[in-house]
Amino acid sequence: MNILVLNGSPRPNGNTAAMVKAFVDGAETNGHQVTVISVCQKKIAGCLACEYCHTKGNRTCIQQDDMQEVYPLLDKAEMIVLASPVYYHSFTGQLQCAINRIYALDKPKNLKKAALILSSGSDDVYGGAVYEYQNSFLDYLKLENMGIFTAFGEQNQSEEKMKELYEFGKALK
Score class of each variant (00 low, 15 high):
M1P: 08
S9C: 14
P10I: 01
P12K: 15
N13E: 09
A18F: 01
V20P: 08
A27R: 03
T29E: 13
T29S: 12
V34R: 01
T35R: 06
V36Y: 06
C47A: 09
C50K: 10
E51R: 12
Y52M: 13
H54F: 15
T55F: 14
K56C: 01
I62F: 05
D65I: 02
D66A: 05
V70M: 05
Y71S: 04
K76N: 09
A77C: 05
L82R: 02
A83I: 02
S84Q: 04
S84W: 13
P85G: 01
P85E: 04
Y87P: 08
F91A: 03
G93P: 10
Q94S: 06
L95E: 07
Q96V: 11
A98D: 09
Y103R: 07
A104G: 03
A104H: 11
A104S: 11
K109E: 02
N110Q: 05
N110S: 04
L111Q: 09
K112R: 13
A115M: 14
S120G: 11
D124E: 12
Y126M: 12
G127W: 07
Y131E: 08
Y133K: 15
Q134E: 15
N135S: 15
S136P: 10
L141D: 04
K142I: 09
E144P: 12
E144L: 08
G153I: 06
G153R: 03
Q157R: 11
Q157H: 08
S158C: 07
E159K: 07
K161Y: 00
Y166W: 12
E167W: 06
E167M: 10
G169P: 00
K170P: 01
